[in-house]
Design a binder for these strands. Structure first.
Lengths: 155, 155
DNA sequence: ACTGGGAATGAAAACCATTACCATTAGGAG
DNA sequence: CTCCTAATGGTAATGGTTTTCATTCCCAGT
C-alpha cells in the first residue's frame, strides 16, 4: 500500500513525474517537512526545518519549490497580513484536507477550523457552478478567511 | 440630506471625528479618489490619482492613511497575489457594498461579482454565529475569493 | 552501469512594496 | 488668533521575495 509510512514511492511521486518534474532531495525534504508540520508555515520556517536535515539547502530553492508546488496544486499559499506568505500541504493520501482560517486582527494568531465544512461545501459548489456559467470563469480554487478577535484579545 | 453630492459635510466626517482623527486635505482627497474609482486600487495608483489634484502628497501619507482607513473599517485591504495590496472603499452612504472577487491565476485579472450574495450571507451568518460560540472568536470581517481561469485564459 | 544534456540548485545581488525616521507643517480646541 | 500636537513628506532603511549565473546532479538513452 504505497503512500503509507511503509515502503514504496510516496503518493505524490506520480504527480511530479506526470508533470515532467524531477525528484530531488530538496523537493522531497520540503514536502516531508510540510506534511509533518500539517499546518501553515512561512518560507523561513520551512527553510529552517529543511536545513536541519539537509544543511546544504538554499532559501532560493525553498521559494522556487514552493512556487512549483503551488502551481501543481500540492500546496496552498496564504496571506495572513503579516507581510510573509504561509504555505500548507493541500492534500494527503486521503485527499483534499478542507479547512479555513480565523485570523486575529490584534495579535495575528491564526486558528484552523474544520467544522461547518459541509455548509461551506454546499455554498461553494453552488457558487462555483453559477460562476462557471454566468462569468465564463473556470474556478479551480477558493479562499475563505475570517477576521476578528481571538479569545484573549477580546478583553 | 448630507452625504449626497450636494452640500453639507460628507457622510464619513462623523466617523473621523468620532475617533478623534483630524480632517486633512490628504485624507479627504484619498477617500474621494477611492469613492470615485469604486474598485480596488493599489497604493501607487491611489498615489498617482491623488497627486494629480494635490501634488504635494507623499507616498508615506498614502500608506499611513490607508492603514488608518482600514482600521476604522472604511476601507478593505486585499491581496490578489501579485505582491502589492489593493484597497477599496468598504461602504458608501447606502451602507456596506458586498461583493467578492474572482482572481485569474494566469493573467492576474480580477473580476468583481455581486451575485449570489444572498447565499453567501446565509452561509456566513450561520458560520459566524457558530464560530462565535464554539471558538470564542469574535468575527468582525471576512474574505472570500475564488481563483481560476478567466474567459480568455481558458483557451 | 555510463554518459551527455538540460533541469535543478545555491550564493550573492537585485528588486520593490512597505515602513521608520525626523524635521517641518497645519488642524482645531480654547 | 495662538499654541499644542497630530499629521505630513522626503529620504533612508527594511525585509520578504526574485533574479542572475556558474555549478551540480537527475535520469533517459545508450
Amino acid at each position: 500500500m504505497p503512500g503509507r509510512n511503509g515502503k514504496g514511492p510516496p503518493w505524490w511521486h506520480g504527480k511530479f513525474r506526470g508533470c515532467g518534474y524531477r525528484l530531488t532531495i530538496p523537493r522531497e525534504t520540503i514536502i516531508e517537512v510540510l506534511s509533518k508540520a500539517a499546518k501553515h508555515l512561512s518560507a523561513e520556517e520551512i527553510y529552517l526545518a529543511v536545513h536541519k536535515v539537509y544543511p546544504a539547502i538554499g532559501l532560493t530553492t525553498i521559494y522556487r519549490t514552493l512556487e512549483l508546488l503551488v502551481q501543481i496544486g500540492l500546496v496552498f499559499k496564504f496571506d495572513f497580513g503579516d507581510g510573509r506568505a504561509r504555505y500548507e500541504l493541500a492534500e494527503g493520501p486521503k485527499g483534499i484536507r478542507q479547512h479555513h482560517h480565523l485570523v486575529c486582527t490584534n495579535c495575528g494568531r491564526v486558528i484552523d477550523y474544520t467544522d461547518f465544512i459541509d455548509e461551506a461545501k454546499e455554498f461553494l459548489s453552488q457558487t462555483m457552478k453559477a460562476l462557471n456559467k454566468k462569468c465564463n470563469f473556470k474556478i479551480t480554487n477558493h479562499l475563505i478567511q475570517f477576521y476578528g478577535l481571538c479569545e484573549k484579545c477580546q478583553k
